[in-house]
Write a protein that binds this DNA or RNA. Structure first.
Length: 219
DNA sequence: CCAGACGTTGTT
DNA sequence: GTCTGG
DNA sequence: CCAGACGTTGTT
DNA sequence: GTCTGG
């Protein structure tokens, strides 16, 4: 699964990586992006822009926002049948820029967190869905969820699921609302484990209040 | 037709 | 909003 | 994902 | 134990 991730590069680097012209995200390097927090997303917009949304999808029909804290992931295998996801799947797909994520492994009484990234260290796109939710009062809120797939051999020791990392060549097709969703299901597959690496990190990452470069240092 | 649900993960 | 169950 | 809270009533 | 908030 994916319950915490990183985007440690600055906004310029994110824009370069995803060929964007402008940004409303105000992104600064992040080492501990947690559910319900705002994070950069790439929608289908012209001109191409780095946008922003709240992690944890709140369906448009939700009466309150609390469900958002639980809908942080969406299983790829059941996207089409789940009411909360099938509507955004059609025309509201997004890229979630990231360059690493965390998984926890129980070791005796406690849990040890691990950091996972590409061996290249490069940012990548997680497959996401987004929605707009209108609170009873106030401005509409954009939210998003991260799609999960079966874990590869690198992640399997930690969990049965991992976030869907998109191959670079399908990123544009993924956000294009003209692409039929059925044609995209095959790209939701475990990323090659040989291109990923993992190491143990400090338990300081457990608290979402901590967000600094030391969180991804190997211990 | 109306009413009511609508989600994921891990752990026990 | 959209689907399922009654 | 983990951390942290977890309640009611009436009155101002 | 379970739910909400970050």
């Amino acid at each position: 699964m994916c319950g915490r991730y990183t985007l440690t590069v600055d906004e310029e680097a994110v824009m370069r990586r995803f060929h964007l012209d402008s940004s409303e995200a105000g992104h600064t390097p992040r080492f501990n992006i947690a559910p319900t927090q705002m994070a950069p997303v790439v929608l289908n917009e012209a001109p191409r822009r780095l946008s922003v949304g709240r992690w944890g999808l709140i369906p448009a029909w939700s009466k309150d926002a609390t469900i958002g804290a639980r809908l942080i992931n969406a299983r790829a295998e059941t996207l089409i049948e789940k009411p909360a996801f099938r509507t955004p799947l059609k025309r509201r797909r997004c890229l979630v820029p990231a360059d690493g994520f965390y998984e926890w492994r129980a070791e005796g009484k406690s849990k040890t967190p691990f950091f996972i990234r590409l061996k290249s260290g490069e940012p990548f796109a997680l497959a996401g869905l987004w929605e707009v939710w209108q609170p009873p009062t106030g401005e509409p809120l954009r939210t998003f969820t991260i799609i999960t797939v079966e874990a590869n051999e690198c992640i399997a020791p930690f969990h049965a699921r991992m976030p869907a990392i998109l191959p670079r060549e399908v990123e544009q097709a993924w956000v294009d609302p003209e692409t039929p969703a059925v044609e995209l299901m095959a790209v939701l597959a475990p990323f090659p484990a040989r291109e990923m690496e993992v190491w143990a990190v400090s338990r300081r990452v457990n608290s979402p209040a901590n967000d600094d470069a030391s969180l991804i240092e190997a211990i």
